[in-house]
Design a protein around this nucleic acid. Structure first.
Length: 933
DNA sequence: CAATTCACG
DNA sequence: GACGTACGTGAATTGG
C-alpha cells in the first residue's frame, strides 16, 4: 500500500489511488436475491409485505462487507427480461418462469437495501447484469486495477484474467484460471467457444446436439476456436461428429453470440461513484427498523454492544492474489511519526492483525517486549517496546518509550470500528490488560485460533505454525530459532531488533492471512453462531477467570504434605519388608518383576513393550486375592500421587497474591471441552478422604464463600433428549433417580424393589452407553463375564430401542461425513473412522458415539458461562467466576450475596438450552471447595 | 522422549 | 474367526 486514505477527509476529495491499489468488487445482485429468497422461510413485515429475500439479501451483503475490503464496490442487477439476445434468438431464457409472486414486491426493497448500505447500485434496462459486470470489469482492468466478481454464474467465467477473479459467494472460494480449466477444460479466454458448442439447457442456448463440455473442450483445444473448427469440420474423422457439426454450424454461431458477454455496454454510473464508503448510520438504521430486521440491528450497533463490527471497505493490496504477497521484509517502528502513520493505516483498513511479544508464556507474569500490527497481507510492522541490550558490549537498541507507544495505541485497540485479529487472543488480552503493561483493552476482536477450532476441532491442532503450513503453505520462523533452546535460550527482550521484527511481524502477517482464509468459512460451514455467540465470547470470560485465580491455603498444604511424607516413609518400609529387600516402589518395572517373576503371581504381560502391567486394576485384583504387597503399593501410590502432583505442584504454582491461576486451553480437545494446565485445576482430587483434604485447601477470601454449581447428569439428559427415550424423559421430568429407573426397566423390577446392586449395574451401563462400550468392557467393570454382560446390554437395548438406533445413526454419520454433529451444531471430526485397522476404527466409532454427549455438555456450560457475568451484574451481585470443571462452575461469593447468587446461577444455567428434558443445576457453598459440594 | 500410571469429569 | 476392549483430558515419574 503506497497511499493511505486519511481519516476524516471527505470521500470526494480523497486523493486518487495508484492503479495497483484499485480493487473493484462487483456483486451479482440477482444471484443473491434468488438465493436469499429460496434459502429463507417466508417472512413478512407487520404490514404484510413479504421480506424474506430482502432480509437474506441484507444479511448476505452485511456479511460480505464485514469480510472483504476493496477500494470500489457495486451491486449489479438485471432490470429487464428482454435483451439484445432475444432479438438474436427468441427462445433465449424463454422458458424461465416468472419470478414468484412473493418475490416481486421485494425487488424494490432490495434496491433500497443496497442504497442503505451505502453500496453503489448498477442496472440498465435492456442489459443483463452479466453484461454490465463484463463491461465494468474490462474498463477497470484496462485502467490497471484488480476486479473480484462475486457470483457463482459460470457464464461469467469467461471474464477471468490475471487481474480479474471470481469469488463463489457460497463457498467463499476464489475462482481463477485453474478452476475454469477444471470446469470447462479450457482457459477463460476460450470459455465462450466451448459454451457455443456445448450449449446450456438452463438458458436455452442450443449448442450442437450430442456435444457436451468434454468433447467441446477437446475440439477447441485442437482447433483453437469455433470458426476455425467449423471451417475445418471436414477434417474430423468421426463421421457422426463431423456431420452434426456441419448441420448445426449456425446454431453454434448463434449460441456463441448468446453466451458472449457484451463488454461494451454503456456504463450507467461512473467508476468513481463506486468508491467504497461507510454507510450513513442513520439511513441504514432507519432501513433496518422499517423492515423490522432486529438481528441485523443488533449486529450493527443497536444490540448488546458485544462486538458489532463492520470494517470500512478500503484497500486490500493482495486480495485477488493473497498468496502473491511475500512474507516480509517488514518494518521496525522506532519513531513516533512512523507509529502514527501505521495507526492511521490500521484505522483506514478497518481490520488489523495484532500480536504481542513478551518475556513469558505465562500471560499473567509476562511483560511486554513488543507489539506487531499487520494491515494487509505482506504488510506488517514490529514496535519494540521492552528490548534490552543482549550483553554489556551491546548498545541499548533504539525504541519508542513504552508508555508513549501504549498511549498512542490505546484508542486504536479500543476503537469499535477497527477489528483486531489475534491468534490465541486470550493470551494477548491478558498481557495487555495487565496494568504493568499499560492496562489496554482490545475490542472488538477475532481470534484465528478459535475460528479454526470452531471449524475443525478434532482434525488437527490449531497453533499458528500448524495452520500457516496447512492453509498458507508457509512455514513461519520458529520461536526456538529466534531465542535458541535449553540453557542457551535468551529472553525475547534480548533478541536483536532485525531478528525480532522478522519473527514477530511475520506472526501478525500470518494471523491476518489466516483470518482472510478462515473467517469466510464460518458462515459457509455453519459455524458462525458457534464462533460468535459462544467461542469468541468465552475469551474475555476465561481471561477474567484466569486473572482472578483461586485462593489456596499454603500453610494447610504444607501440613498435608508433612503428614503424607511421614506415612509414605512407613509404607515404603513396609513394601521393602514384604519383598525382603529395598526396591523403588515408584518403578512399575521393578514392581512387575517382583510380583510376576520373583513371587510367581499370575498376571501376565500387557502392552507392546512386553512390560508387566501393575496398574490399579491389576493390583486391586491381587489385593483381593490377599497379596499384602499389592494393597500396600496401592496405598503408597495414592499418597505419592497426591503429594507430588497436588501438594507440591500446587504449592509451586501459588502466586504472590496467595492464589493459583490456571491456564484454560480453549482449542485442545476434540469435543469442545476446555482443558486446564499449569496447574491443571480440573483434576483436583475428591474421590478419597485423602483427596478431600487437598480440596479443603481451596478456600474463599475472608467474608466470602466458594460456591459450586454443577449440572446434574447432564450427559444422560442429553442421551434422553437425543435418542428421545420416553421413559427416561419422564424420569427426568419427575426428578426420579435415573439409575434406579433404568434398573427397574432393564431388569423388570417393581420400582420399589431396585436393590443397590441392580442400581450399581444400571449406573455402570448408563455411563457405558455414553462411552460406546462393549460387552467385554461392561463385564470388566461389573466383574462379570462377557456373556452375562451381553445379556444386560441386550436387555438395555430391548428396553430402549431408540438408543440403539441413535448409536447406529452416529456411527453412520461419522462414516459418511467424517464428523458428527453436537446437539447444538458443532462439527466434531472423527479421525480414523474409515481406517482399515479394525482396532482404530472401533475406537473411532466409540468416539463418534461419545463426542455428541461430551460436546453437547461442553456447549451447554459454555453458553452458561458467557451469560453468567452479565446476569450477575444485572442482579447487582459481585461474585466472580473462578473455575470450570466440565459440568461445574466455581465462584467466589460475598457472604451477604450467597442466596441471590445461587438463585441467579441456577436460573441462568438451567435456561441456556431447551431440551426435551429439564436441565437441573445443584448449587452448594462453603468456606472451602470441599464444603461447597 | 516414550511409556506408565493416575487425578478429574 | 480374530482383533482388542469405555470417552475426554494433564502431570509426574521412570528409564532408555
Amino acid at each position: 500500500m503506497t497511499t493511505t486514505p486519511i481519516e476524516g477527509v471527505a470521500e470526494a476529495s480523497r486523493p486518487a489511488l495508484p492503479a495497483e491499489d484499485r480493487h473493484l468488487i462487483l456483486v451479482d445482485g440477482s444471484g443473491y436475491i434468488f438465493r436469499a429468497y429460496h434459502a429463507l422461510p417466508p417472512m413478512t413485515r407487520p404490514d404484510g409485505t413479504p421480506v424474506n429475500a430482502v432480509f437474506g439479501f441484507a444479511q448476505m451483503l452485511e456479511k460480505f462487507l464485514s469480510q472483504h475490503v476493496a477500494s470500489h464496490i457495486a451491486v449489479v442487477f438485471d432490470s429487464a427480461r428482454e435483451t439484445f439476445r432475444n432479438a438474436i434468438y427468441p427462445a433465449y431464457k424463454a422458458h424461465r418462469p416468472e419470478p414468484p409472486e412473493e418475490l416481486v414486491p421485494q425487488f424494490a426493497l432490495i434496491r433500497d437495501a443496497t442504497d442503505a448500505f451505502g453500496v453503489c447500485r448498477v442496472e440498465l434496462p435492456g442489459f443483463e447484469a452479466d453484461d454490465l459486470i463484463a463491461s465494468y470489469a474490462r474498463e477497470f482492468e484496462a485502467e490497471g486495477g484488480r476486479v473480484t466478481i462475486v457470483s457463482s454464474d459460470k457464464d461469467l467465467m469467461q471474464l477471468i484474467r490475471d487481474r480479474v477473479i471470481m469469488l463463489d459467494p457460497i463457498k467463499q472460494k476464489p475462482i481463477r484460471a485453474p478452476e475454469v480449466m477444471e470446469k470447462f477444460g479450457v482457459a477463460p479466454e476460450k470459455v465462450v467457444e466451448v459454451q457455443a458448442l456445448a450449449g446450456d439447457a438452463t438458458d436455452n442456448v442450443p449448442g450442437v446436439p450430442g456435444i457436451g463440455i468434454k468433447t467441446a473442450a477437446q475440439l477447441i483445444t485442437e482447433y483453437g476456436d469455433l470458426e476455425t473448427l467449423l471451417a475445418r469440420a471436414g477434417e474430423i474423422k468421426q463421421p457422426k461428429r463431423r456431420e452434426v457439426l456441419q448441420t448445426h454450424a449456425e446454431a453454434a454461431r448463434i449460441s456463441r453470440k448468446l453466451v458472449q458477454l457484451d463488454v461494451n455496454a454503456p456504463l450507467p454510473c461512473p467508476v468513481e461513484d463506486m468508491r467504497a464508503r461507510a454507510p450513513e448510520p442513520a439511513r441504514l438504521l432507519a432501513f433496518l427498523r422499517e423492515n423490522n430486521f432486529r438481528s441485523l440491528l443488533a449486529r450493527l450497533g443497536e444490540g448488546d454492544g458485544g462486538a458489532p463490527h463492520r470494517p470500512r471497505p478500503v484497500v486490500d493490496t493482495a486480495e485477488a492474489s493473497p498468496e502473491a504477497a511475500p512474507f516480509g521484509p517488514y518494518t521496525t517502528i522506532t519513531d513516533r511519526a512512523t507509529l502514527d502513520a501505521w495507526i492511521v493505516e490500521a484505522r483506514a483498513a478497518g481490520v488489523v492483525a495484532l500480536d504481542t511479544e513478551t518475556t513469558s508464556l505465562d500471560a499473567l507474569a509476562a511483560r511486554l517486549v513488543g507489539i506487531c500490527l499487520a494491515t494487509a497481507p505482506g504488510r506488517a510492522a514490529y514496535i519494540p517496546l521492552g528490548h534490552a541490550p543482549a550483553d554489556m558490549l551491546t548498545e541499548m537498541p533504539a525504541q519508542l518509550p513504552q508508555a508513549e507507544a501504549v498511549e498512542a495505541l490505546r484508542p486504536l485497540l479500543a476503537d469499535p470500528g477497527v477489528l483486531k485479529v489475534l491468534h490465541n487472543a486470550k493470551y494477548d488480552v491478558e498481557v495487555l490488560a495487565n496494568p504493568a503493561n499499560g492496562g489496554l483493552t482490545v475490542a472488538p476482536l477475532d481470534d484465528t485460533m478459535m475460528i479454526s477450532y470452531a471449524l475443525e476441532a478434532g482434525l488437527h491442532g490449531h497453533g499458528m505454525d500448524e495452520l500457516s503450513q496447512l492453509h498458507l503453505g508457509h512455514k513461519p520462523i520458529s520461536f526456538d530459532e529466534v531465542t535458541g533452546t535449553g540453557r542457551a535460550r535468551i529472553s525475547f527482550a534480548q533478541v536483536p531488533l532485525d531478528r525480532a521484527t522478522a519473527y514477530a511481524a511475520e506472526d501478525a502477517d500470518v494471523t491476518l492471512r489466516l483470518w482472510h482464509a478462515l473467517r469466510p468459512r464460518l458462515r459457509a460451514e455453519k459455524a458462525l453462531a458457534l464462533y460468535e455467540q459462544v467461542e469468541r465470547r468465552m475469551i474475555p470470560v476465561l481471561a477474567a477467570m484466569e486473572t482472578a485465580g483461586i485462593k489456596v491455603d499454603g500453610a494447610e498444604l504444607a501440613r498435608i504434605g508433612q503428614d503424607f511424607a511421614e506415612r509414605l516413609v512407613v509404607l515404603e518400609a513396609e513394601c521393602h519388608r514384604l519383598v525382603g529387600r529395598p526396591f523403588n516402589v515408584g518403578s512399575p518395572k521393578q514392581l512387575g518383576e517382583i510380583l510376576f517373576q520373583e513371587m510367581g503371581l499370575k498376571g501376565g504381560k500387557k502392552g507392546k513393550t512386553g512390560a508387566y502391567s501393575t496398574d490399579a486394576s491389576v493390583l486391586e485384583e491381587l489385593a483381593a486375592q490377599g497379596v499384602e504387597l499389592a494393597r500396600t503399593v496401592l496405598d503408597w501410590r495414592q499418597l505419592a500421587k497426591l503429594k507430588s502432583t497436588y501438594v507440591e505442584g500446587l504449592a509451586a504454582a501459588l502466586a504472590a497474591d496467595g492464589r493459583v491461576h490456571t491456564d484454560f486451553s480453549m482449542a485442545i480437545t476434540s469435543t469442545g471441552r476446555l482443558s486446564s494446565t499449569e496447574p491443571n485445576l480440573q483434576n483436583i482430587p475428591i474421590r478419597t478422604e485423602e483427596g478431600v483434604r487437598i480440596r479443603r485447601a481451596f478456600v474463599a477470601e475472608p467474608g466470602h464463600v466458594l460456591m459450586s454449581a454443577d449440572y446434574s447428569q447432564i450427559e444422560l439428559r442429553l442421551l434422553a433428549h437425543l435418542a428421545d427415550v420416553p421413559t427416561l424423559r419422564e424420569a427426568f421430568a419427575n426428578g426420579e433417580d435415573i439409575h434406579s429407573r433404568t434398573a427397574a426397566e432393564i431388569f423388570h423390577l417393581e420400582p420399589g424393589k431396585v436393590d443397590k446392586e441392580a442400581r450399581r449395574r444400571a449406573k455402570t451401563i448408563n455411563f457405558g452407553i455414553i462411552y460406546g462400550m462393549s460387552a467385554f468392557g461392561l463385564g470388566a467393570r461389573l466383574g462379570i463375564g462377557p456373556g452375562e454382560a451381553r445379556g444386560i446390554i441386550d436387555a438395555y437395548f430391548a428396553q430402549y430401542p431408540g438408543i440403539r438406533a441413535e448409536m447406529e445413526r452416529l456411527k453412520d454419520e461419522a462414516r459418511i461425513h467424517g464428523h458428527v454433529l453436537s446437539p447444538f451444531g458443532r462439527r466434531l471430526w472423527i479421525a480414523d473412522i474409515k481406517s482399515k485397522d479394525p482396532v482404530r476404527r472401533g475406537g473411532a466409532e466409540r468416539q463418534a458415539i461419545n463426542a455428541p454427549f461430551q460436546g453437547g455438555a461442553a456447549e451447554v456450560i459454555k453458553r452458561a458461562m458467557v451469560r453468567v457475568p452479565q446476569a450477575l451484574r444485572d442482579a447487582g451481585l459481585s461474585a466472580r467466576m473462578l473455575l470450570q470443571v466440565h459440568d461445574e462452575l466455581v465462584l467466589e461469593v460475598p457472604e451477604a450475596e450467597v442466596d441471590a447468587t445461587a438463585a441467579t446461577l441456577k436460573s441462568v444455567m438451567e435456561s441456556v438450552a431447551q431440551l426435551r428434558v429439564p436441565l437441573l443445576v445443584e448449587v452448594g457453598h462453603g468456606r472451602s471447595w470441599a464444603e461447597a459440594h
